[in-house]
Write a protein that binds this DNA or RNA. Structure first.
Length: 107
DNA sequence: TAATTGACTTACG
DNA sequence: GCGTAAGCCAATT
């Protein structure tokens, strides 16, 4: 047992991925909400850091994560790929922005 | 242990 | 609406 009663560190990633996997097709979530729903309020950057580490072939809907302004935070060339995937699910971007009022997912 | 980093957010001008 | 600045927080160095 133990020597280590602290959080596994890996926990944050697991929780965030779990929430991410629950975001339905055709909806989006902000970094802040993703972190908060995973149990890390105000740790939006943690969500971003987690996403950055995801393998390129992940099945998780990483593209459904956008910033609080409804804009894509991922730098090019990833941004183009994300935009493409979003539109493929019927999420239209107006002037590079997703209408959060319409597509934002919050249970 | 301390400093740096970052797919963020909010407040201001 | 846009750029800048400051605030936040866990992971990484």
């Amino acid at each position: 047992m133990g020597k280590n009663a602290q959080t596994d560190g890996n926990d944050a990633i697991s929780r965030i991925c779990r929430v991410l996997a629950s975001v339905p097709r055709g909806r989006v979530i902000t970094y802040g909400d993703l972190a908060e729903m995973a149990g890390y309020p105000r740790a939006a950057r943690l969500a971003g850091q987690t996403l950055r580490k995801l393998p390129r072939d992940t099945r998780l809907p990483w593209h459904r994560v956008i910033n609080a302004q409804g804009r894509i935070s991922l730098p090019e060339p990833g941004a183009q790929r994300q935009r493409e995937r979003l539109e493929r699910e019927g999420i239209t971007l107006l002037k590079g922005r997703v209408e959060l009022a319409k597509y934002r997912w919050q249970p």
